[in-house]
Write a protein that binds this DNA or RNA. Structure first.
Length: 109
DNA sequence: ACGGTGACGCTCA
DNA sequence: TTGAGCGCCACCG
């Protein structure tokens, strides 16, 4: 699956933290979503949700890591390099229910 | 080594 | 319930 990703993971500039984030994010099943906090916790660094957001923002591997499946814990969409609208579109496409306000029904795993 | 930045989160009013 | 404020952590100049 992600041999391309493995290569990029080796590139300098990618910190161990960021690596963990990408890997964890890649595990999110299609049609489901996770939160920045969840990711942070999963990689053994609860409270680092902000840092997680930073890592995803840089996200060197676009489709390999479904960063659009990561939302805020309060149900908000959060951010997206390609535009939140795009992010919402993708999620709806995957079956995630979102209210007109851009709020997610939170369909965590 | 220091301070600023940002796709977050929780508390208080 | 909604909005504003403060605290968090890792990264970069």
């Amino acid at each position: 699956m992600a041999r391309q990703m493995e290569k990029k993971l080796k590139e300098p500039g990618i910190t161990p933290f960021a690596r963990s984030v990408y890997i964890e994010t890649a595990k999110i099943p299609k049609g489901k979503v996770s939160t920045y906090s969840e990711i942070a916790e999963a990689i053994g660094q609860p409270g680092a949700a902000r840092a997680v957001g930073n890592a995803l923002n840089k996200n060197p591997f676009a489709p390999d890591v479904p960063c659009h499946r990561v939302v805020r814990s309060d149900g908000r969409i959060g951010g997206y390099a390609g535009g939140t609208d795009k992010k919402i579109g993708l999620l709806k496409k995957e079956g995630v229910q979102i209210s007109s306000d851009g709020k997610i029904r939170l369909l965590r795993k």
